[in-house]
Structures are given as structure tokens and as C-alpha cells.
């Protein structure tokens, strides 16, 4: 009965965490990174619910905590999407690597993307 075993849920939550970290480091668009961060938060919520179901003396506490995680995830998404829209309007790019205005210039680094800014007309709408 794997559905009555704490370890199953913990492994699924660990998978969500790792896949979220992988998505954050591998995506080259802000929306993709934001979605991966949401996966991490979902894994955290699943962990809380699993410990709540199997170990907690008062099972209402974990549900309250997971509910609060959901609220914070919703607020984070709203702020994140508005930042992405504002950054796109300001810099005309969604590539995180090209947003290096505050970065000290390091010779030889990002040489492949520097100077070839994305013009707004190029590419296709999704």
C-alpha cells in the first residue's frame, strides 16, 4: 500500500523540488523560470501535507501552512508576471542573460549574446 506510506509522498515531493531547480537553471525565459519556481512550491506543500498526515499531532496545522504557501505562491506569480511584462517593455528582451545592465563587464563572458539584442519585431508570437 504505497498510498499509505510517508516515503512515497516524500519521494514525489523531492522529485518536484529537483525538477523545479532543474527548470530554474535550464530555462532561458522568465516565465519558464517562474513556472519552475511554482513547481518547487508545490513540492514544499506536498511535503507539509505528507508530514501533516502521518506525523503531526494536530492535522489542522499542516493544512493551514499549506494554505498559506498557496497564498504566497499566488502573490509571487502576480508580482512575477507583472515584473516580466515591465522588464520586457523596458528592455525589449525576455532573455535573462541579456539583462546585464547592473553586471560588471567580464571580458570573454557572454560573448555569444552581447551586442545582438533581440529586436521586438523578430520572432513569433506564441
Amino acid at each position: 500500500m504505497l498510498s499509505q506510506d510517508l516515503k512515497t509522498y516524500l519521494v514525489v515531493a523531492a522529485f518536484l523540488l529537483i525538477i523545479g531547480v532543474y527548470g530554474v537553471v535550464q530555462r532561458r525565459s522568465f516565465i519558464g523560470m517562474l513556472i519552475s519556481a511554482e513547481l518547487i512550491l508545490a513540492g514544499a506543500g506536498l511535503n507539509f501535507m505528507a508530514f501533516n498526515r502521518f506525523l503531526a499531532p494536530d492535522p489542522a496545522v499542516g493544512q493551514v501552512f499549506t494554505l498559506i504557501i498557496m497564498g504566497i505562491a499566488a502573490a509571487e506569480t502576480a508580482i512575477g508576471v507583472s515584473f516580466i511584462l515591465a522588464v520586457y517593455r523596458q528592455f525589449k528582451t525576455i532573455d535573462p542573460i541579456q539583462l546585464n545592465e547592473l553586471q560588471e563587464s567580464i571580458p570573454g563572458r557572454h560573448a555569444d549574446v552581447d551586442g545582438e539584442g533581440v529586436s521586438p519585431g523578430q520572432g513569433e508570437r506564441q
Partner: peptide, 29 residues
Amino acid sequence: LIYLGAICIVLVFGIMVGYTPRQVAEQGI
């Protein structure tokens, strides 16, 4: 309600309103 109904809708909205060239979005994959 929150994840599927609110967060995913906001993300879809962000993709549709924002301008996301496909090459830039996934050139690092």
C-alpha cells in the same frame, strides 16, 4: 482553485500579453 484556476491563468495571460519570441525563449534548452 488557486494553482489551476488562478496561477496558471495568470501565467497564460503573461505569455499571451507579453511578447515571447520562441527562439529566445528556448535557445538555451
